[in-house]
């Protein structure tokens, strides 16, 4: 699984007009992985991508490609291609010429260009569209042209900046699967930017969660979901219940007025911590059997499950359950040791 590191960002600092955007960001990206930069809008994802692409020169820090510093290498000399947020297709060229753009610059011979372009268009499902003008394509088709154009150059790394942002939900889901397939078929590194956590979890080998120019956590989708390092990650990756608690000793935590066994250790005795419980990990039981008891405030049907808000001793719990309780009903809640996740308190 651990491929060699292909791109390494070391202590990258980027300012815009004196405003710090990235403040010492370090990140290793492994070869042939699907890596996603995930975070809220404005957190510096695009800027990070542009540092790798060569469009933003960091004030300090190193950008290593296969161990070599490429900080001063201009974009057109980097073995990296980009799928831009708004596609950035050339409107004066047709589909074929857009895809061939990079190949023509390489002075490849016409036969080779032709076979490469046709191969790429076939890969993205746009065979027969060669002569079409860009303006006559739908959003989804433009997206595919942009991807084909990026891949045609056979880059070592493809950078994708929220490429599915403008597409409707159904098309987005299709393209997610498509992109994952493409990445595996081409056998190269994809660095993908999104603010959509579900997208990140579905497609990635590695997710990099960012906030305010800092990396919050790096890990597999499972890691990030099940073992969030802090409240920001927990909250950003899906819904969760986050409450303050006290570590009484190893494997024993107290919160919401009750003691729970857990699987975490290594905290100081009586250390104040934050506890994360996913809504689907709370078991609803009859009131007398519950470690916690609370009153159901409301119930919303969400398609696959019901979402309930439960009031318990001043806390409000969100529970996802396939069985609905009645609003006003007193219910019991149990949480297994595996489902309790302890985090050190976030220093703001």
């Amino acid at each position: 699984m651990e491929n060699p590191v292909i791109v390494s960002l070391q202590d990258i600092v980027v300012d815009f007009d004196g405003e710090p955007i990235l403040t010492g960001l370090s990140l290793d990206i492994h070869d042939k992985e699907f890596v996603t930069l995930l975070g809220p809008s404005g957190c510096g994802k695009t800027t990070t991508l542009r540092v790798i692409g060569g469009f933003v020169e960091p004030k300090s820090g190193k950008v290593l490609f296969n161990g070599k510093d490429i900080k001063s290498l201009p974009p057109y000399k980097r073995p990296v291609n980009t799928v831009f947020q708004k596609y950035a297709l050339f409107p004066h060229l047709n589909v074929y010429e857009n895809v061939a753009f990079g190949l023509r610059l390489k002075k490849m011979d016409e036969k080779e260009i032709h076979s490469r372009v046709m191969e790429m268009l076939e890969t993205v499902g746009l065979k027969g569209f060669e002569r079409r003008s860009i303006a006559k394509l739908s959003g989804g088709q433009q997206q595919r042209v942009a991807i084909a154009r990026g891949l045609a150059n056979h880059p070592k790394i493809l950078l994708l900046d929220e490429p599915l942002g403008a597409l409707d939900l159904k098309l987005r889901k299709e393209m997610q699967i498509e992109l994952k397939r493409l990445q595996q078929a081409m056998d190269i590194t994809f660095i993908y930017v999104t603010h959509d956590q579900e997208e990140a979890l579905t497609m990635s080998d590695t997710v990099v969660v960012m906030n305010k120019g800092h990396i919050q956590q790096i890990g597999t989708p499972e890691d990030i979901y099940n073992e969030p390092k802090n409240a920001f990650v927990a909250e950003f990756i899906g819904e969760s219940n986050i409450v303050d608690g006290v570590m009484r000793r190893d494997f024993m935590v107290e919160f919401a007025g009750a003691s729970f066994s857990c699987v975490d250790k290594g905290f100081a005795v009586n250390e104040i911590v934050q506890v994360v419980v996913r809504p689907e990990d709370i078991q609803v039981v009859p009131a007398i059997q519950g470690t916690l008891t609370g009153v159901v405030k409301d119930v919303i049907f969400k398609g696959v499950h019901f979402e309930m808000r439960v009031e318990q001793a001043g806390y409000e719990w969100i529970i996802h359950s396939t069985q609905a309780s009645q609003p006003g009903e007193l219910i019991g809640m149990n949480i297994g040791p595996e489902e309790i996740h302890i985090m050190r308190r976030m220093e703001e």
């Binding site: 753009f101 990079g102 154009r149």
Partner: peptide, 25 residues
């Protein structure tokens, strides 16, 4: 701007960005 960046991204230096994107457009 993104069109100029796209040209550079695909391997065009200043001159070829000029002749292949800016001037035709």
């Amino acid at each position: 701007d993104s069109l100029i960046e796209a040209a550079q991204d695909l391997g065009a230096g200043t001159w070829r960005t000029l002749t292949r994107v800016l001037i035709p457009m």
